[in-house]
Design a protein around this nucleic acid. Structure first.
Lengths: 336, 336
DNA sequence: ATTGACATCCAAAACGTTTTGGATTATTGT
DNA sequence: ACAATAATCCAAAACGTTTTGGATGTCAAT
């Protein structure tokens, strides 16, 4: 059924060793016999058994990613990151092993399982938390990894977008448009980027000479629903904000919905801005002002770094920090 | 470093065989020693080496999916399908092996490679073509698989959405709104569902008493750009259509853009409808009338079927055909 | 005392590959 | 002509599991 080295050996009259050497480019086999063996291998449709190969020489040619499965695991952010990573992995001839797991203990176990069972050569970690236990684990296990996002520790390779600068830009943009009451919808505090984006918010307000009012700061959980709820809360205030900045696009889109439900016009009555520039942001109604994270490219670059870590090559930049780009669209009123 | 059965054997004083039996639930080991061995395994943090396990007993506990990588492989359709499959796979304790490949010969090779190297227990095939060589290959190799979409042959398990009925509904909906010139943006002819959706288009026209005019039928390739180009072509006709139906949402969104560029109002001057109900459809501007394919659920069901195929369990329904739901939104003018 | 049944354990083979350490010729330099 | 070198090949070990086919001891039934 399945054709192995043994079959090729029998067919060609050479030993398994020689066949193996011929196929994997050793220098100690005659060029004629190499061609002969390769021809037979092709004719029989030989494909090396990867399980066996991995068992012998630790190298799986696959890289792993653990995806948190919340209600819908189709988080557009993750999907785009996955695309970039997957694309670049294909470029290097690597496949991608996905494990969808509930965040928390289950997720950490998935890492343990995958790493210890030596199924992958390296792993891409995303959506990093403060004191992220996954990173601690990977560091202790000396398993190659690269992170999208930075935590408090930084003795590991990461690539990140400067969230502080991004939100800072947005707040200034809104302030310039005349907004005085700018609300902020936070991401979960345990996520590492939350503090940075919040910093950007505070800095932006300060620079615009606006006061920091905690009534205008609401907690969300990155979902559309939480953005909706947050906006509803904000609009119910005695002095509702005239602009709402959310920590990601999904929440911003949810906020827009809430605003529209109150018969208010987004971009005129209330300005809205997000963070990420997911595909849905451009085609939203109205199109969403946001900060563009080139997630797809980040995925590709992250994989580049990972490959280098795996190959033990020197890395010129252990830390890559990208400056995001402000994308002004109708939702902030700047273009109406 | 890595803890193996041998380590547990040494630590416990039993043989490797007994340790293996204890851990994998054989009946021939004393309950006390089993507990003892399990305790040691936990203490040492034992994780079985999957490569070795697979080598011995063919079973990888991973299922595969090959994703065509076009310019951006972040096709929302695939991402959502992936979500569903991944979610359900996690439910069964399976992981997901992704391989991103250029469609065509490369893609088929990826199948060959993955299947022959026995890295996966089964595979989910999507976006099936007429006389799809991948299916032919999988059938010949007797490798478990399940397909989203049906081709001309049907001696394999598949789950599909009735595209004929879907487009039929859309055309009738538009005809009821008074449209007489309804254009159709086709998907590539080699895709199996194209013929079916086209059938639905023709049937719908016939049932509404409208003539079939080939000038109103334009070829697209499922991308937003091709939808844009198609709509531009249609609007340049001496008698442009008053409604445009696209074979998928991405093309419909592209068409909307082209219409708006001509300073026409979608839903008033020209009605637009798509197919799929991807997330971006609801948040488009205006929201897109479409036919809802429950892609996420389809992914889950497909995986259910696949698991059954892998386990060699009898399958009650070898073919599942879902009827899609018409979602009327503003882009068709029905709600303005 | 012998047999059979049972419970508990284990040595060794097998899975398909890569790698190590030669073995055998052929070729070259002296 | 002889040693040294190069070219070409291969047997066997190793990777970490699972599975096969007993081995050993105990206990009850004959």
């Amino acid at each position: 059924m399945k054709v192995t080295l043994k079959d090729i050996a029998r067919e060609s009259g050479y030993s398994i060793t020689t066949v193996s050497h011929a196929l994997s480019g050793y220098g100690d086999v005659n060029e004629n016999t190499r061609q002969h063996i390769i021809a037979i291998a092709e004719r029989l449709g030989y494909q090396p058994n990867l399980a066996a190969r991995h068992l012998r020489s630790k190298q799986t040619k696959t890289i792993g990613m653990v995806i948190p499965l919340t209600a819908y695991f189709s988080d557009p952010f993750f999907m785009e990151l996955l695309s970039g990573v997957g694309r670049q992995a294909a470029e290097y001839g690597y496949d991608l092993l996905l494990s969808a797991q509930q965040p928390g203990e289950e997720e950490l176990n998935a890492y343990r399982r995958i790493v210890a069972s030596s199924r992958i050569d390296g792993v891409v970690v995303a959506r990093v938390q403060r004191d992220d236990p996954r990173i601690t684990f990977l560091k202790e296990a000396h398993h190659p990894f690269v992170v999208f996002g930075r935590s408090n520790a930084n003795d590991y390779p990461y690539i990140d977008v400067d969230g502080r600068a991004g939100v800072h830009q947005i707040v200034l943009h809104l302030a310039r448009l005349g907004h005085r009451r700018i609300a902020f919808v936070l991401s979960p505090p345990q996520l590492a980027f939350t503090a940075l984006r919040y910093e950007g918010y505070c800095q932006g307000l300060a620079e615009a000479g606006l006061p920091l009012d905690t009534a205008y700061i609401v907690q969300g959980d990155l979902t559309r629903a939480s953005g909706h709820a947050a906006a509803a809360r904000l609009l119910a205030l005695p002095e509702p904000p005239t602009a709402i900045v959310a920590c990601n696009d999904s929440m911003a889109l949810g906020a827009m919905l809430a605003i529209q439900e109150q018969k208010l016009v987004v971009g005129r009555d209330v300005a809205v801005a997000g963070f990420d520039d997911i595909p849905a942001a451009a085609s939203a109604n109205p199109p969403l002002t946001t900060v563009r994270q080139p997630i797809y490219d980040i995925g590709r670059q992250a994989l580049d770094m990972l490959i280098r870590v795996i190959r033990n090559e020197p890395i010129e930049n252990l830390h890559v920090l990208l400056v995001p780009e402000l994308i002004v669209r109708a939702s902030s009123g700047g273009m109406i």
